[in-house]
Design a protein around this nucleic acid. Sequence first.
DNA 1: CGAAGGTTTGAGACAGTTCAACAGGGGTGG
DNA 2: CCACCCCTGTTGAACTGTCTCAAACCTTCG
Lengths: 242, 242
Amino acid sequence: MRPTAAHTSSRQWLAEGPAAVRAMPSGQQVLALCEALGLERRRVRRRQYVFRSGQPLHALFLVHCGLFKTVVVNEDGCESITGFAERGDLLGADGLSGASYGCDAQALDMSYLWELPADRFDTVEAQLPGFWQRMAVLMAGQIQHDNRWRLQLGHYNAEQRVAAFLLELSECQRAQGCSADTLLLRMTRADIGNYLALQLETVTRVLSRLHALGLIQVARRNVRLAEPDALRMLLRIPRAWH
Amino acid sequence: MRPTAAHTSSRQWLAEGPAAVRAMPSGQQVLALCEALGLERRRVRRRQYVFRSGQPLHALFLVHCGLFKTVVVNEDGCESITGFAERGDLLGADGLSGASYGCDAQALDMSYLWELPADRFDTVEAQLPGFWQRMAVLMAGQIQHDNRWRLQLGHYNAEQRVAAFLLELSECQRAQGCSADTLLLRMTRADIGNYLALQLETVTRVLSRLHALGLIQVARRNVRLAEPDALRMLLRIPRAWH
DNA sequence: CGAAGGTTTGAGACAGTTCAACAGGGGTGG
DNA sequence: CCACCCCTGTTGAACTGTCTCAAACCTTCG
């Protein structure tokens, strides 16, 4: 779900890995690196939590396949989705700053992930020199993604946010070799709204409006980007212009 | 400017350092560690840029004293302030995911910072084992801070955002041993508004309103938190209420 | 089949934006 | 030192995008 930053950084992480890994086709690299470390692979069912905010940090995770959402919760029970994690994305890293996870991670689909237990944090560097530097690179990608989101939230209106969201999804699918213009939204309208700091009704209305304009076709969770270039154009219009 | 996460993580970084460093008083630790690495200290004048978005990543920086703002810019020239960096905060780390900085870093005051040149990234681990793991910890703190901000932006109204901002500033000052209720805003109203995704007029209006309510006293850039507990109370009220 | 969860659409309200005018303060140059 | 000007901050009034509340519909699943 981080088409530019995270995906290039995963690629960079792996490109800098041992030659044997570097030579492999891109899709196999994450898997190979995790296997090189002798990591466990774990299956997570739809709606199941990988970890919850506040739990002791017992491991870091790398998504092998599937889709997760990460949610921060404050003391009053307000929730915000901070992102969606796909193949190659890191889960749980924000917990490194303390002794416990800083968010919930919940599977939106049947998913698989690799697990690096906390008791290996201090020895993994010896096993795979440069591990933590690469981890810092992955986290830098996440920070850049957060920053871009902040820019959009501050300067985009509802229509632009939804358009940007759809284009981001599309870019992700393309990066994984799937069709770039036929999307299946695996999250609810409420999730999308929460992620974009909009109400779910607003998301619905915007989708309907974009449909009426002929830019997209919407049928519940199936979306087709009919005019992706027009969507991209939308993003270049200043917020004040309706 | 990251009272809870970043400051505790700097502390943690240092707490895990060599015993000689660990034994020093907290305020001196960052300095000592940077000196242990033989880093250069650099002076930056008010309004001067440390680096600009897109420039090749030539170094990472740690703030020694002073205040910086970090600003992301998109292709249309829209700008968003992603944060303010104070003593102990890292600058430039988001650039690690690529070969160039992802934001501008500008001094708001006469400031000093330590510089780790890019050509030492690969050797610093040998000199100070655990360096990159600690760097990951610092970055995790930044991600957690971003997440908390996202939560506030999604669920707080203008009044709550400004109140949260003031309390964050106050917490920062307290962490650095200064008075917690007398603040000097070293950034403009436009900066504050940009950071909080509000217009500068809204920031002004909210400050005036909080002043009229007796919660704070405002005179241009001088702010006194008359009723910090009442401000904190504000944050616990759901957005829908007024 | 009924219940529960998710989606769509409408109508009205309001928080925050936009535009505009003005006031103060601090730095610069005469 | 004063006068000027620019930058910053303040306040008002009208507008509008988004939220809120409400009702209905559709799908899925027990």
